[in-house]
């Protein structure tokens, strides 16, 4: 059994987002980078849990990007996993291009289970898992909140609009992971030491099209500031919501 977990780096949740060069590029100065929380807390930690239950599982981590990813990948390896692969490219703005790189690594590695987070907290595309599944012609379970393996079958729960459903599917499968899958972990000292010597393979990208271009960015208009209403005058709030904001 081979599992591939895809990891992306994103600015820390608390990072202040600004842009440079005429709002065409993210200002990276002062931004702290983390592993995309959905990739780390849910996909990676669940994969580690599965490997803890079945130590014969081979767990590989994959990231697409430049050498600046390496510290993030080491951090992920400190949590668990046997080895990591980085597809060496600075072209990371188009989802299809990235999905093509992941699909190629997946084809080469013959994985039974490919896991991603349900979306990244920077570009919020929620696209990579679906694209990889299509490129590999595999079933895709999106927004999964539970995942168990039973031989060559995966049992999952996934979110649907207005509820949840349980799915059963034969491996191989692509799964995008969300809350419920696993609880966040912090790497321990042993993990951090072990991560230093785990293999981190760097492979070159394959040719792939870019279907989209990010032209420029815009910050949302600043809020006008909060209008406070007295606790003794709740009717006033309802009036404001009805007449001023026109939302009820």
């Amino acid at each position: 059994m081979k599992i591939l977990v895809c990891l992306s780096k994103t600015p820390d949740t608390t990072a202040k987002i600004t842009f440079k060069n005429g709002n065409t590029q993210l200002e990276e100065a002062g931004v702290q980078w983390i592993i995309n929380p959905y990739d780390e807390w849910y996909a990676l930690v669940r994969a580690i849990e599965l490997k803890e239950k079945d130590p014969t599982i081979v767990l590989h981590l994959l990231s697409v990007g430049g050498a600046d990813l390496d510290p993030i990948i080491r951090k992920a390896l400190a949590l668990g996993g046997d080895e990591a692969i980085r597809v060496n490219t600075t072209e990371t703005s188009d989802s299809f291009y990235i999905a093509s790189q992941i699909a190629e690594v997946a084809r080469q590695g013959g994985y039974d289970l490919i896991m991603t987070g349900k979306e990244t907290i920077d570009y919020n595309g929620a696209s990579i898992g679906g694209m990889v599944a299509e490129l590999l012609d595999l079933p895709y379970i999106s927004a999964a909140s539970k995942l168990d393996l039973n031989g060559t079958t995966a049992n999952l729960s996934r979110e649907i609009d207005g509820g949840e459903e349980a799915n059963e599917v034969s491996l191989p499968v692509v799964v995008s992971c969300m809350k419920g899958m696993a609880d966040a972990r912090i790497p321990n000292m042993r993990g951090i030491m072990a991560a230093r010597t785990k293999p981190l393979k760097v492979v070159e990208p394959v040719d792939a099209e870019k279907l989209t271009t990010y032209v420029n960015y815009e910050l949302p208009p600043a809020k006008a500031g909060v209008k406070m209403v007295s606790a003794d005058n709740v009717g006033e709030l309802v009036r404001l919501l009805h007449e001023e904001a026109r939302v009820i």
């Binding site: 989802s95 999905a99 595309g125 898992g129 694209m131 599944a133 299509e134 989209t212």
Partner: peptide, 23 residues
């Protein structure tokens, strides 16, 4: 852009090589 779209729009994007704006 609901959960259904998140499950199929990216697949369709890859299948048709059609650029996708999600959200």
């Amino acid at each position: 852009h609901n959960l259904t779209a998140r499950a199929i729009a990216p697949r369709l994007s890859a299948r048709l090589k059609a650029g996708l704006v999600a959200g």
